[in-house]
C-alpha cells in the first residue's frame, strides 16, 4: 500500500468519480467541484507563465510595443461589465472570427475537398473500388438539401444512410478497445500504485 499522501488523494478522488456510475452523490459532487476548481487554477498559472509573461510583459520590457495593440483589444472584453460600453466586446470577437474564417476557407478547400476528391478517384476497376465510389456518391446525395428525398433521389439517399451506419458501426467498434484500455489503466493505478496488490 502506498504511503504517498498524493497517491492516496488521487486514488480516493478516482473512486469518488466512479461513484457517479451508481448515481449523483455528495462524494462525487465534492470531487467534481474540486476538479473544476483545480483545473481553472491550473489554467490561471499556465496562462500567466506561458502567455501573459512571455507574450506581453517580456516583449514590452524589451521595447516591442506592438503587443500593446492586441493587449488593448483584449482589454475591451472588460467592457462587458459596463452597461453603456458592452458593445465594445464585439471588436475582439470580430477579430477572432474574421481570422478564423479567413484561415479556414482555403485550408478546407485544400484538405476537406480537393484531397478527398483526389483520393476517391481511383484507377483500379475492382468491385471494392466501385463500392467505395458509389458509397461516396450516395452519402453526398443524402446531404443534398435542394432535393426532396423521394423516388430515385430517396433511394440513393437511403443507400447513403446505410453506408453511414456501417461507418458509424466501424468507428464505434474501433474505439471500444481504447476505452476499455483507459479503464484498465485506472484499475492498474488503484491496484498497483495505491494498494500494491498487483505487481
Amino acid at each position: 500500500m502506498s504511503t504517498n499522501i498524493w497517491v492516496w488523494i488521487a486514488a480516493l478522488l478516482t473512486l469518488s468519480v466512479y461513484s457517479f456510475l451508481y448515481k449523483d452523490n455528495p462524494i462525487y459532487r465534492f470531487a467534481e467541484y474540486l476538479f473544476i476548481g483545480t483545473s481553472v487554477g491550473y489554467s490561471i498559472g499556465f496562462l500567466y507563465w506561458n502567455a501573459f509573461i512571455p507574450r506581453i510583459v517580456r516583449p514590452v520590457q524589451a521595447g516591442d510595443y506592438i503587443v500593446l495593440i492586441p493587449t488593448f483589444i483584449g482589454l475591451l472584453f472588460f467592457a462587458r461589465f459596463t452597461r453603456k460600453w458592452t458593445w465594445l466586446v464585439r471588436y475582439p470577437i470580430a477579430i477572432s472570427l474574421g481570422i478564423g474564417a479567413g484561415i479556414s476557407i482555403p485550408l478546407t478547400i485544400q484538405a476537406g475537398i480537393f484531397r478527398q476528391l483526389q483520393a476517391t478517384m481511383v484507377g483500379d476497376f475492382t468491385i471494392s473500388n466501385i463500392i467505395m465510389v458509389v458509397g461516396v456518391i450516395c452519402t453526398l446525395f443524402y446531404f443534398f438539401f435542394s432535393l426532396e428525398q423521394k423516388g430515385v433521389v430517396g433511394g440513393v439517399a437511403k443507400t447513403g444512410i446505410w453506408y453511414i451506419m456501417i461507418a458509424f458501426g466501424a468507428i464505434f467498434g474501433y474505439t471500444v478497445m481504447a476505452r476499455i484500455a483507459l479503464f484498465v489503466s485506472r484499475v492498474q493505478f488503484l491496484l498497483h500504485d495505491w494498494l500494491g496488490i498487483i505487481k
Binding site: 475537398i113 452519402t139 456501417i166
Partner: peptide, 26 residues
C-alpha cells in the same frame, strides 16, 4: 471501402458547410 466512402462523403459535405458558413461570416 464502405466506411471510408461514408467518411469521405460526410467530410466533403462538412467541408462545403464550413466554407459556406465562413463566407457568410466574412
Amino acid at each position: 471501402y464502405p466506411s471510408m466512402a461514408a467518411t469521405r462523403g460526410i467530410a466533403l459535405g462538412v467541408g462545403l458547410g464550413i466554407i459556406g458558413t465562413s463566407l457568410k461570416i466574412i
